Simulated scan of single mutants.
Amino acid sequence: MTTILVTGASGQLGRLVLDHLLASGKVAPGDLIAGSRDPAKLDAYTQKGVKTREVDFDGDLSEAFTGIDVALIISTDALGEPGKRQAQHKAAVTAAKAAGVGHILYTSLPKAEESVITFAPDHLNTERAIKESGLPYTILRNGWYAENLFMSLPHVVQSGQWFSATGEGRNSYLPRADMAAAIAGAILLPAENKTYTLTGEEAYTVREIAAIVSAVAGKEITVIDVTDAQLAEGLKSAGLPEGFVPTIVSFEVNTRLGHFEPVTQDAATLSGRKPQALKDFLEANKSVFAG
Rank of each mutant, 00 (worst) to 15 (best):
A191C: 12
A191W: 10
E192C: 02
E192L: 13
N193E: 13
T195N: 01
T195Y: 03
Y196H: 13
Y196K: 07
Y196D: 14
T197S: 10
T197G: 02
T197Y: 03
L198E: 10
L198K: 04
T199A: 06
T199I: 07
T199L: 07
T199Q: 07
T199Y: 11
E201D: 14
E201L: 15
E201W: 00
E202V: 06
A203S: 15
A203Q: 03
A203C: 02
Y204E: 01
T205Q: 05
T205F: 06
T205H: 05
T205N: 11
T205W: 05
R207Y: 01
E208Q: 15
I209Q: 13
A210Y: 12
A210M: 09
A211M: 01
A211T: 04
A211D: 14
A211G: 01
A211W: 03
I212D: 03
I212F: 08
V213Y: 07
V213E: 14
V213T: 04
A215P: 00
A215D: 15
A215V: 01
V216T: 11
V216N: 10
V216H: 08
V216W: 06
V216D: 10
A217D: 07
A217G: 06
G218D: 11
K219S: 03
K219Q: 13
E220Y: 01
E220A: 14
E220S: 11
E220T: 14
I221S: 09
I221Y: 11
T222G: 00
T222H: 07
V223A: 02
V223I: 05
I224E: 12
D225Y: 01
D225L: 00
V226W: 12
T227S: 15
T227K: 04
T227G: 14
D228Q: 12
D228W: 02
A229P: 02
A229R: 06
A229H: 11
Q230D: 13
L231P: 08
A232E: 15
A232C: 11
E233K: 14
E233S: 14
E233R: 10
G234K: 11
L235E: 12
L235W: 11
K236Q: 13
K236V: 13
S237H: 10
G239R: 09
L240P: 04
L240V: 15
P241D: 14
P241F: 13
P241R: 08
P241G: 09
P241K: 12
E242T: 14
G243C: 01
G243T: 05
G243F: 07
F244R: 08
F244C: 00
F244D: 07
V245R: 09
V245T: 05
V245G: 11
V245L: 10
P246L: 07
P246K: 06
T247Q: 09
I248A: 06
V249N: 08
V249F: 03
S250F: 03
S250T: 10
F251K: 01
F251H: 11
E252C: 02
E252Y: 13
E252I: 00
V253D: 05
N254H: 02
N254W: 03
T255S: 12
R256L: 05
R256N: 13
R256W: 10
L257C: 04
G258H: 07
G258C: 02
G258M: 08
G258T: 04
H259R: 15
H259M: 11
H259I: 00
